[in-house]
Simulated assay, not measured.
Amino acid sequence: MKFRLEVDIDDAASADESARELGRILRYWGGNLHHYGLRPGDGSAVHDSGHREVGRWSVVSAETP
């Protein structure tokens, strides 16, 4: 299995703000990990603390580049 996470961070935010926001996103996603089967084809949108879609995570087969 291959896990992919892609998040677009606001270029206008400072490095500290970006790091805090990414930390919140990762904590939220990690806390909900048990809700997912983590099988190839699983995935979902990723949202920031303002509930804006900022990326996506997905599980793909190990052979997918």
Rank of each mutant, 00 (worst) to 15 (best):
M1H: 03
F3W: 07
F3T: 03
R4M: 09
L5T: 01
E6M: 02
V7I: 15
V7A: 08
V7F: 04
D8W: 05
D8P: 00
I9N: 08
I9G: 09
D11S: 13
A12R: 14
A12H: 09
S14K: 01
S14V: 06
A15W: 03
A15Y: 04
A15S: 13
D16W: 04
D16V: 05
E17P: 02
A19M: 07
E21I: 03
E21G: 03
L22Q: 08
G23K: 09
R24L: 12
I25S: 02
L26R: 10
Y28H: 09
W29M: 14
G30E: 10
G30F: 10
G31Y: 06
N32S: 05
N32D: 07
N32Y: 02
L33P: 00
L33C: 09
H34G: 08
H35L: 15
G37I: 01
G37W: 06
L38W: 15
P40G: 10
D42V: 06
G43S: 06
G43L: 07
S44I: 00
S44Y: 09
S44Q: 10
A45D: 15
A45I: 07
A45V: 11
V46E: 06
V46A: 04
V46D: 05
V46R: 02
H47A: 11
D48K: 04
D48G: 11
D48F: 09
S49P: 00
G50H: 13
G50K: 14
E53L: 01
E53M: 06
E53A: 11
G55V: 00
R56V: 03
R56P: 00
R56I: 01
W57K: 00
W57H: 02
W57Q: 01
S58H: 00
S58W: 02
V59E: 05
V59Q: 03
V59L: 12
V60P: 00
S61Y: 04
A62M: 08
E63H: 11
T64L: 10
P65W: 08
P65R: 14
